[in-house]
Design a protein around this nucleic acid. Structure first.
Lengths: 191, 191
DNA sequence: ATATTATAACTAATAACATTAGTTTTGGAG
DNA sequence: CTCCAAAACTAATGTTATTAGTTATAATAT
């Protein structure tokens, strides 16, 4: 019963993130979001650029939270410890915010500068942590790709329930990270 | 202008897979599929169980093709060569059928026996190839999880254009596979 | 205090989609 | 040649996103 519900973009993004995490990314519709906020869906257009715009905002928000988690976890650490901490933080974020994490890689727009910036922030943190190993400029880039593949694959499969087997996934993650570290160690020695 | 267009389930799945690979998974709608087949969308219900049913069929079809590719690539090979060949085949399939690959992990139904069967087929092939390393029963399961994570993560990031850097992704893949192998080697020695 | 204005939220309307109900038509079995 | 199961159809409903145009209010200026 109140024109002027007092919404703003940030409130919308937070509410949408909640829907994504609690009900799944498919349920993030303007209709559902408007209902949650006690408003009619066209009203949302005063704050966001349609559904696509909302998805972009969600992606940026997710990447910022992911960066914060990874950064906080690895600050002050070096080498293997930093890699482990960062990997745990990455997967921890994906577990805590499954829907929001998923929006992170649903790259909708190519030219979005906010999105690009948020992605690069995460990327440079990864590069920094892996720079401790003697991989060379090119080897480092390959290692970054591998590290991202590994983390994203693990997060995605775990979230989808792809690891059906009754075996502690934390142990799997730890061993996988150790495997990766051991692998890049042996790669760097080989060259 | 012809009642009796002569459709069947398989034709629908193939046409839907084409849409998925050429236009993206979002464009796989019953409306688009019906248009492609020269039919009205309600007619599709004679052959599939709605959009959800079609998605399940796509997932099964994708897993079967994936299995065929992996199997053909690794037949007769052992050890590192088999792992490399299987990995290349997995990524090759994801590149060749980006949309179909994506449906593979959009697990819609839990209790679908066809889907379960197709998944287990792929899984047992992976287990077989990794059984050559001395990992122990539990270690082998962790390695399987790691191997799947790595492959899926790489496929997903590459498909989404997540590897923005101008560096040959085939080289990255080769090195990643080698890194993984080196990693599980050192893990098995450690215990 | 009162008038003005920018804009948040609204109603109404359209288009795309999935889905169900009920009808028509036809290819093949008898 | 007849008949029937089922393939394809039309019609209708409900959900969604989105646009156009309207109303009402909060903040500002007078």
């Amino acid at each position: 019963m109140s024109p002027r519900a007092g919404l703003d973009t940030h409130t919308l993004v937070l509410a949408a993130a909640e829907i994504a995490d609690e009900q799944g990314i498919e349920e993030v519709t303007l209709a559902a979001l408007a209902a949650k906020l006690g408003v009619r869906s066209p009203s949302l257009y005063n704050h966001i650029n349609g559904l696509q715009g909302l998805r972009s905002l969600l992606a940026v928000h997710g990447l910022e939270l992911l960066y914060a988690a990874m950064s906080a976890a690895s600050v002050g650490l070096k080498g293997d410890a930093a890699v482990h901490a960062m990997g745990q933080a990455y997967i921890g974020f994906a577990r805590q915010h499954p829907g929001l994490y998923e929006t992170t890689l649903r790259a909708p727009e190519e030219g979005n500068p906010e999105l690009k910036k948020a992605s690069e922030q995460v990327l440079s943190l990864i590069i920094e942590v892996l720079s401790g190993y003697e991989l060379g400029a090119e080897g480092e880039l390959h290692a970054v790709r591998g590290w991202r593949s590994l983390l994203h694959g693990f997060a995605a499969l775990e979230n989808k329930g792809g690891f059906g087997m009754p075996l502690d996934t934390n142990v799997s993650l730890n061993r996988l990270i150790s495997t990766f570290i051991a692998g890049i160690r042996s790669m760097s020695l080989r060259e």
